[in-house]
Design a protein around this nucleic acid. Structure first.
Lengths: 203, 203, 203, 203
DNA sequence: AATGAATGAGTCTTCATTCAT
DNA sequence: AATGAATGAAGACTCATTCAT
């Protein structure tokens, strides 16, 4: 299969494929080992190319790292925003957005830990980028909550804190399995979080 | 003052102080730079000793890292549990415990990011340790919530998820300033989180 | 003018021009950076061709270097010999030959430093080539001096040493500006050298 | 012998010996291969130490190179100035100074070619250093000639050009053997150069 | 013939760790 | 016990060269 598609692929790759291929391979390796333990040669191998080729596309390991972060966060934000639109009311939108976030965290936990973990690797510009991404993600949820407020379903409060609580709480998906919440599927986690934040736990 | 106590300290250090001093110095450096960027020599310098001496007390940089994690998490857990006892009812206890957690995250954000970030550096044993610490922290909050349930104040639900939401949400303290929640003091954040989780946001 | 001749040139180049163009481009780059710091890609760019094309004409960077040395030294020797013929007597010939040498050193100091500097890059054959070039240049001056001897103007000595002193002294043109002999034009330098060597400095 | 002196040596080395040992080893390797072809590991091996140790004493290969140049030129200048003082009159001083220069060029030709050859490797500061060294060497000869002028032995001219001619001509020592002036010993070369420059070659 | 994307051998450099003092 | 000079394994990065198009 690999063999069969070589010609088609290689014709395509020259244009933009290589760049993206390397990003994706690097995403895998960085996610599983972190910046420092990831070896450029290993990334190249994962991408099925030679070590030097990486440097044809990226100035340095650090630059590659930055592009990996940007690539995946951009991709995530796009999907997240789309999910946040697809629903008939604020409640459905909330479920869709949070569901997507939790699914992604659940599946790609490695990558999302990068965002916190390798904060040390970030220069100021990348750090500001991450702050912006975080802010945008928060805004997506805030807007949904604002819709709920407008519809009279939600208390008329500043939706920022609840929005951020919802997002932070989604991080629990990272620890499923490790923390005894076995049997807690992504879907179950989503419902539980929404339930707590919407209804509270007071009797 | 610093100067005055030096002699006393250095005489005393020979017994047990050195070990702890190194841990504390290493905590500072690891927190601010992460495992890989921290240099053993810098840690030694911070501790006011020679590089070789570090290896008299710790087998390797990795071993030192493990002990640093254990030292600070143990210290944290102890304080966290104490805070969770000091209050006349579940509500006060919750405020005290969460307040402490948020304060620590706010002050020592660098260190607590270690716990997530350098997950990659952990061998299985340290990872299990961290899982245990997380579990115990969760248990502390769960017990407080259970007290509230028993007192009839809180719905009769499994308190695990709310407990973990409370803990995860506390992480917002890590981003104060960066994320536009300026003006949100640790105290304000604590109250906001408790309010949302206890009462929910539905009208 | 440059533009106008491009088409003509490029049509012509296919035959022999390319080869020479590359040599000239390489001469520029090697002269300004030396062998090691010169990049094949940069040479290609300077020649207005692709990197791979260089290898169509030259087996390797080293081979190209050798040809560059040969090309320019041959060119220089030819001009040097011509200058050494153009004069009515030994004195005029000496002035013309030395004048040319000094002018070339003054203008293309970079290239002539190659000859010494990258001695390490030379394999035995190129080294012998350089020895031969040096010998021929010396011979040109020796012959002029011999003419002077024959004419009874110059002492009847072996002209080799004076010839080589004249040539070595011409190297001072390399340092004009750096060494405080500012204001010493190539012409002035030429006259000063000839004056000293012919007349000596004793009172 | 080597063995016998180990303790004495090693006690001494710790202070300043290592630094100088590395310089000397590096001088050997740089001289014989030039900057680029010299391998740090080979320099270390020549010095009888490990590769990493070089970096304990020198920040980088380039820094080491700079120090090598400075070390040997300083040493040369010192000896050159001393030789230029040791003589009863200008003539003896000239013979001593030029004799030393020619001997050194003859023996350590590799090193002195560095001075020209690796001009490309020099940053501006090192280049200025070399200009200064050249200027000082010239000044030494100029002063000797000035003494001759004062004594009425030499024409009352600016001694700079003759001084520089004497120095440049000494470079012929670099080519003894290669250029057919076989049998021309350093001593013979010295006398020939002085003779030509002092007396000139006109009949 | 011309190209430039791909390659990997070759090097500098870092830094955890050792060990003689 | 304490030290820091010495070490060398490990890894990022460069660039001459190749070769499919």
């Amino acid at each position: 299969m690999e063999e069969i598609s070589i010609k088609y692929d290689s014709a395509f790759k020259k244009k933009k494929g290589r760049y993206e291929e390397i990003i994706i391979a690097a995403g895998k390796i960085f996610s599983s080992k972190g910046f420092h333990r990831a070896r450029v040669e290993e990334i190249a191998k994962e991408a099925g190319i030679g070590k030097g080729t990486v440097y044809e596309y990226f100035k340095s390991k650090r630059h590659l790292f930055v592009e990996v972060i940007k690539y995946f966060t951009t991709k995530f934000l796009k999907e997240f925003k789309e999910a946040a639109c697809s629903g008939k009311d604020y409640r459905e939108k909330l479920e869709n957005a949070l569901g997507l976030l939790i699914d992604i965290l659940h599946e790609s936990s490695g990558f999302f830990e990068l965002l916190v973990r390798d904060r040390w690797e970030m220069d100021e510009r990348l750090y500001q980028w991450m702050v912006k991404v975080r802010g945008e993600a928060s805004k997506v949820i805030e807007d949904i909550l604002a819709e709920g407020i407008k519809a009279g379903k939600i208390k008329d409060i500043n939706p920022r804190i609840p929005a951020m609580i919802l997002i932070e709480s989604s991080r629990l998906a990272l620890f499923s399995g490790d923390l005894g919440n076995e049997g807690m599927s992504p879907g179950g986690l989503k419902r539980a979080i929404i339930d707590v934040v919407l209804n509270g736990i007071l009797r």
